[in-house]
Amino acid sequence: MTDRSNAAVLVLPQAGTVGARKILPMLLWVAALAIPTFAPGYTPLASQIVVMILFALSLDLLVGFTGIVTLGHAALFGAGAYTAGIMALRLTNDPLITALSGMAVAALVGLVTGSCMLRTKGLAFLVLSLAAAFMLHELANMATSVTGGDDGLQGVSFAPLLGVFEFDFRGQTAFYYSLACLFAAFLLVRRVVNSPFGWSLRGIRENDGRMRAIGCPIYRRRLAAYVISSALAGLAGALQAQITQFVALRSLSLELSGDVLIMLILGGAGRLYGAFVGVPLFMFAQDLLAKEDPANWYLGQGVILLVMTLFVPGGVLGLVERVRRSLGRGGRR
């Protein structure tokens, strides 16, 4: 698959912009830390955004870096969310243990479904990803005694983090906790995509036939990416359960799989920071448009998708890149 939308990121940045590229993200991380202090009213929303960024980042590893287009990524988010929620009600409500379990279960679900699905590609893979998520959704819907069915898992509460920090009603603990998780996940993903393994994923995205011909075990490589992505999606799901004290059936739905894909594309897939740009934009647009009539929001998302695919491949970050490049070219002449 050739994908010109991802072309830009693979070219080395021009000298002189490297500084800005490093400093700006650092500033953003620091600014995020200050949200509970300076905008306490927005802390719960900010936590939501952080969790979704983590979810979208996990998807970026598949869609952006490996070229695996899935319509069922919510299955892994939901697996993590339900694991954390069910464990809290029945076994232990320690946040770290349940979060790690959520990751582990999601990774396992990813390993099992992925080891089947990744044997196919194209339409078959798309339909399998749909069908796998659909099955999990139906199972959760039916097993009411365990999952609460359509009503979701309610009244899930968690013990203080590390035995010290209570999940307070203003959501400060929840925010710092999820931000810390996101930061750790980001460092991990950045490591991975810059490793020889990560490069080989790009190779598979660009030309899987050629990768096979240089001796790359494509199936296992893609499966490894799928499992890593699943674990991170599961972590996002577990965090969602912990900070909202609720697990909705929606966390396994096609709608969520679609939403997270749109968020990622809006920011720009295969760029590492695409999720960080796309998710807030998506959530603000949703807040703005869905208030009066859900139809407005559907229309908004639809228009975003059409504009993105027809005119702005590469998302907002791709657009920024292109504008800056044409400015740079103009400036040099």
């Binding site: 939308s5 869609v63 070229g67 287009v69 679609g258 027809l310």
Partner: peptide
């Protein structure tokens, strides 16, 4: 790409 077509038709 398949991704673009999926996104477009979702839109």
């Amino acid at each position: 790409s398949e991704l673009d077509q999926v996104l477009f038709s979702m839109g």
